[in-house]
């Protein structure tokens, strides 16, 4: 994806360069330009900051989801798991636990579910969709039973400061999101683990023939997903200053959509982490812009679906050429 150096000295070269730009980048570009013309507020500093802040939680689910999808898997338990981790985190804080303890509990829950997902997928060769559909039901049920359907409110300044605070003038939430991105990037592109992930989706048999313990890596991918979800729970809880038993139900589908819109495919280990970032931002910019324009909600609902379909159509047409 290092296309920035293409010499654009003739129309055909220009076209060739443009046609290599993935669908999601087109869409994000059009959205930004369109909204900027339609409403002056869109490109204002506070609004851009809003889009960034609102996208962080989704990004933290979409990053590990990219890796999982590259192994030809999927994790639909993330939204329910995020919810469960968030209510547990809130519960610990509400019972005078420290923020560190609460975060540890949240990460532990994420890790346990992630490991369970990974082990069922890797060892028992069960379809990832089924495994995570099952664990999703369990996480959803546990969150409901644990809270008896009530919100758990946390009046804790340290918690509120996680989402609202800033470090060196940069909002902490953005920093956490950036660190999560850079870390995942490093993991995927600069470690042996990452190389194996590309191979796991492309040709797992070759990998096991080479004597590599594919199962361990597969389990690690899902465990990473669980841990990131546990960390995202901190941001979610801080954002609401409370835990709510249905807060993030269904968010995994948004994450999957962002990943696929960003150019990662369900087959052959084709993944593009930066595309996932673009996909998350496209979803965020679309929702934000439509809100600024006060487009009726029913139209907004359809627009989100169209975003997904159009992004894939663009990539589909380019694939044919």
């Amino acid at each position: 994806m290092n296309d920035s150096t293409i010499a654009l000295n003739s129309p055909s070269a220009l076209w060739a360069g443009l046609s290599r730009v993935p669908g999601v980048a087109w869409i994000l570009g059009f959205l930004v330009i369109g909204f900027a013309f339609a409403t002056g507020d869109f490109l204002s500093g506070p609004n851009l900051l809003n889009i960034g802040l609102q996208s962080v939680i989704l990004l933290m689910l979409a990053l590990p989801m990219t890796l999982i999808i590259m192994t030809e898997g999927v994790d639909i338990s993330m939204g329910a798991l995020l919810t469960l981790a968030s209510v547990v985190l809130a519960w610990v804080l509400a019972h005078d636990g420290s923020l560190m303890l609460a975060l540890a509990a949240s990460l532990a829950i994420g890790l346990v579910f992630g490991l369970a997902n990974g082990m069922l997928v890797a060892w028992l060769k069960m379809p990832p969709f089924v495994v995570t559909l099952g664990t999703m039901g369990m996480a959803e049920g546990l969150a409901l039973l644990f809270t008896d359907g009530q919100s758990i409110v946390v009046a804790n300044d340290t918690l509120a400061a996680v989402y609202g605070g800033s470090l060196l003038g940069i909002p902490q939430t953005l920093l956490i999101g950036a660190i999560a991105y850079v870390f995942t990037h490093w993991l995927l592109y600069h470690t042996r683990f990452g190389t194996y992930i590309f191979a796991l989706g492309g040709n797992p048999d070759a990998l096991s023939l080479a004597g590599i313990r594919t199962n361990a890596y597969l389990i690690a991918v899902y465990a990473f997903g669980g841990l990131m979800t546990g960390l995202a729970a901190l941001i979610l809880t801080s954002r609401m200053s409370s835990g709510h038993p249905t807060a993030a139900i269904g968010m995994e589908f948004d994450a999957i959509a962002a990943v696929v819109v960003g150019g990662t495919s369900f087959e052959h280990g084709n993944g593009w982490l930066f595309g996932t970032l673009l996909g998350v931002l496209a979803v965020g910019a679309l929702r934000n812009g439509l809100n600024l324009l006060t487009v009726p909600s029913s139209v907004q609902v359809s627009c989100i679906g169209l975003l997904v379909i159009v992004a894939l159509l663009i990539d589909g047409f380019k694939g044919k050429k």
């Binding site: 506070p46 809003n50 954002r239 934000n288 600024l292």
Partner: peptide
């Protein structure tokens, strides 16, 4: 909210409205 009763979504809408 486009997802019925979604807390994160109403939160985002509030943030957007604070700009608008």
């Amino acid at each position: 909210p486009t997802k019925p009763d979604s807390i994160p979504e109403q939160m985002s809408q509030i943030e957007d409205v604070a700009v608008k």
